[in-house]
């Protein structure tokens, strides 16, 4: 476990929800460069809300607290600004966008980041070679290149595509929202491989998941248990195993454990 990296994400006392309903109720989290965190919790605990709030999805209200990303106020940034500064969300339910080509979107996203950093646009041919290499890693076939964004993809293909985008865009903060759900065991291995390939001393990865099985394939430095909008317990991988054995009720029944 590396505790030496610079702080990439710091969440303090975050309260957030949708109109009429409080979902996150005082969440604290610190993630440093080089670390991988897993946030686990039962349905309705606020996992996806956390991922959505960090990526800037509209419709959420922040009522208290702060989120700092590389020393800046993340919540003050527009979603596209967060993306350009290196925040990437792998969606739980990636949308289909017929008529917009996969590679076109990926290239536009890649160039948006480069432009932000003052770098020239990537050469189309070089970019295609880069994508092809990553596709191989993700076990995706050529037909992907000519298809619309997630158009007609199976659930597993959509998740692979999310991780493919992530490996191409090389974010500073990678957020994965239930990327493991709906995957068969082979797809789970491939997706985990993609996530593992992203581990880097300069990068932080935060995975939100309901199931422990993803953690058979990736090795988070910290595991957090989220319940009722707060992190109730933090530990290492063995916490996930204990959760698997004893269920979430065990954590919720032991207040103040964090």
């Amino acid at each position: 476990m590396s505790n030496n990296g610079a702080t990439i994400l710091r969440i303090e006392n975050l309260h957030a929800g949708i109109p009429g309903r409080k979902i996150l109720k005082g969440l604290n989290l610190e993630v440093r460069a080089g670390e991988m965190h897993a946030i686990m919790g039962p349905n309705g605990s606020g996992k996806s809300t956390l991922a959505s709030v960090l990526a800037g999805r509209p419709g959420y209200e922040i009522t208290a607290g702060s989120v700092t990303y590389l020393g800046q106020d993340l919540l003050a940034m527009a979603p596209e600004e967060r993306a350009r500064q290196g925040v990437f969300l792998a969606f739980q339910y990636p949308v289909e966008i017929p008529g917009v080509n996969n590679v076109y979107l990926l290239k536009a996203a890649y160039n948006a980041r480069r432009k932000h950093r003052g770098e020239p646009e990537v050469d189309a041919f070089e970019f295609l070679e880069l994508v092809r290499g990553k596709m191989k890693l993700m076990g995706m076939n050529e037909s992907f290149l000519s298809r619309g964004v997630n158009e007609g993809f199976s659930g597993g293909e959509k998740k692979r595509n999310e991780v493919l985008q992530m490996t191409v865009l090389e974010p500073t903060l990678a957020l994965l929202d239930e990327t493991d759900s709906g995957l068969d065991i082979d797809a789970l291995k491939v997706v985990s491989q993609g996530v593992n390939s992203l581990r880097d001393p300069s990068r932080a990865i935060v995975m939100v998941t309901h199931y422990q099985r993803l953690l058979d394939h990736v090795q988070p430095d910290q595991v957090h248990v989220l319940a009722d909008g707060r992190i109730l317990r933090t530990g290492d991988r063995t916490l996930a195993l204990e959760l698997e054995r004893r269920g979430y009720d065990w954590v919720q029944a032991a207040p103040g454990a964090a």
Partner: peptide, 11 residues
Amino acid sequence: QLFYLLSRGID
């Protein structure tokens, strides 16, 4: 769909 594109850095 709009948010998906924004989240990829598209203005």
